[in-house]
Simulated assay, not measured.
Amino acid sequence: MTTRISLLALLLTAASTLLPVSARALDVPKGDVILTVTGRLDHPNADGKAQFDLPMLEALAGRSGEMETPWTEGRLTFSGPLLRSVLTAAGAHGTKVKLTALNDYSAELPMEDATDLDTMLATRMNGAVMSVRDKGPLFLIYPFDEKPELMNEKYFSRSVWQIRDIEVTE
Rank of each mutant, 00 (worst) to 15 (best):
R158Q: 03
D53W: 02
L12G: 15
G94V: 00
V86F: 01
A89R: 14
M151I: 07
D47L: 03
T100G: 09
L121H: 12
A114D: 07
M56H: 06
I163K: 04
L60P: 00
S85Q: 11
T123F: 03
I166R: 02
A25M: 09
M56G: 06
N103Q: 10
A25L: 12
M67H: 00
T119I: 05
R24Y: 03
L102Y: 11
H93I: 01
S131Q: 14
G48Q: 08
R164L: 05
T36P: 04
S157F: 04
D104C: 08
I163Q: 05
G39Q: 04
T119C: 14
L76Y: 00
V21A: 13
N152D: 11
G39F: 03
D165L: 10
K147G: 03
D145I: 07
E170H: 12
M125S: 14
A23E: 13
L11K: 14
L12K: 09
A61E: 11
S22R: 14
E112M: 06
I141W: 03
M111S: 07
Y105W: 02
A90W: 02
A14V: 08
N126W: 08
P70R: 04
H93D: 00
S131T: 15
T169Q: 02
L26N: 01
T13S: 13
L140H: 15
D104M: 10
E153Y: 04
L57F: 03
G39E: 06
A14M: 07
S79L: 03
F52D: 13
D104Y: 10
D113F: 04
T88C: 01
D113K: 07
L83W: 14
L19G: 06
A101S: 15
A46C: 05
M130L: 13
D118Q: 08
L41N: 01
L138P: 13
L140A: 12
L18I: 14
F139E: 15
E73A: 11
D165Y: 08
G80N: 00
I141E: 12
T72H: 12
L102E: 08
G91T: 08
L35R: 14
L57R: 05
R158P: 02
D116V: 07
E149K: 07
S64A: 05
F156C: 07
I141Q: 09
A122I: 01
L54M: 06
G80H: 01
S85D: 09
T3F: 07
G94N: 04
L60W: 03
L26A: 02
T2P: 06
E167L: 09
I163R: 07
